[in-house]
């Protein structure tokens, strides 16, 4: 009799636990739902329209009524002269930015780390971070104020030193340098915050131990501080490698002011697709966009695989 009751009670408790667990899962589900819906609608649903990349799009027939044309749109892009130029430019800039971003942000973070005055640190930090809060438009204004052919600061300096003023907005050869400098100037302050935050979690006793062993400042940095940063550097690199084929649209569209003469060195895939979209060739623009996404996806997965193999604790997923 008693035994039976015991079993009954146990079942009851189990049941209650199960219900509590279900209720918990349900409320957690509800908390995830709004965000999932937004992601679903704006990141997943648009994928339906990727079919347009394989169609001869005719606005009157609509996306789904237009006839298929296989890989024609891709062929059109890859056999055009533009393809080599825009893909080449995009990759050149992305790789340069990736390498310089890492070097500059780690360097700056180390400089902040070694600064003893807290007040000075806060001041310098605020100053270098400011450009990150300016829009691409304002950045374009600032570049223009320096490079303006007749009134700009740079030409004034060149003339004062006895040189001839240069018409920056018609000479494509200078733009790789101009855009790289602008990019670093704008982003290094913010990028270094992530590295610096990682340095804050560095165990002081490790540094002390190194000092006791007679390590110099450089040895300390090289053997203790930088290894501590490796995981963050790896994650940042994986994330930017996924964007190798993308590039910062604002920088490349606004700063050279969309001047045709500068396209040889400033036109990247994103500015090219934007112009295609503006001219109404939706299908070509979509095809190029799809190519970019697929390449980005492959690059991230491959890099992650490589990292997983060599140091599994640092991989992204």
């Amino acid at each position: 009799m008693r035994l039976k009751q015991n079993i009954y009670e146990k079942e009851e408790i189990l049941k209650r636990k199960k219900w509590a667990k279900r209720r918990e899962t349900f409320s957690l589900d509800m908390m995830v739902l709004p965000g999932m819906l937004i992601l679903f609608i704006f990141n997943y649903v648009p994928m339906i329209w990727l079919v347009i990349a394989f169609k001869d799009y005719n606005p009157n027939l609509g996306v789904f009524g237009s006839p298929w044309n296989g890989l024609e749109n891709f062929k059109f892009f890859f056999t055009s002269q533009d393809a080599a130029r825009v893909i080449g430019n995009t990759l050149k800039y992305s790789v340069t930015f990736l390498i310089l971003d890492t070097i500059c942000s780690v360097g700056l973070a180390l400089m902040f780390f070694n600064l003893r005055s807290r007040k000075a640190l806060k001041f310098y930090n605020t100053v270098v971070i400011l450009p990150k809060f300016l829009s691409a438009v304002i950045i374009a204004f600032i570049v223009y104020i320096i490079l303006n052919p007749s009134y700009g600061l740079l030409n004034q300096v060149i003339v004062a030193l006895g040189g001839n003023s240069i018409n920056w907005y018609t000479e494509a050869e200078y733009w790789p340098v101009i855009l790289t400098v602008t990019h670093i100037w704008q982003t290094v302050g913010m990028n270094c915050i992530i590295q610096y935050a990682a340095l804050m979690s560095l165990d002081e006793s490790l540094l002390e131990a190194a000092r006791l062993d007679g390590a110099s400042k450089w040895q300390e940095t090289w053997h203790v501080v930088i290894p501590h940063l490796i995981p963050v550097i790896i994650i940042c690199t994986i994330l930017s490698i996924g964007n190798l084929f993308q590039g910062d649209f604002g920088l490349f569209y606004q700063t050279p002011k969309d001047v045709g003469l500068l396209y040889p060195t400033t036109d990247v895939i994103n500015t090219y697709t934007y112009r295609a979209l503006r001219n109404g060739s939706f299908e070509k623009s979509t095809a190029v966009g799809l190519f970019q996404s697929i390449m980005g996806c492959i690059l991230v997965i491959v890099t992650n695989k490589i990292v997983q193999k060599n140091s599994p604790e640092n991989s992204l997923f």
């Binding site: 648009p46 347009i52 979509t286 966009g289 799809l290 996404s293 996806c297």
Partner: peptide, 9 residues
């Protein structure tokens, strides 16, 4: 990892 791009949106 993957986005549909400018035109589909």
């Amino acid at each position: 990892l993957f986005s549909a791009g400018m035109v589909p949106s």
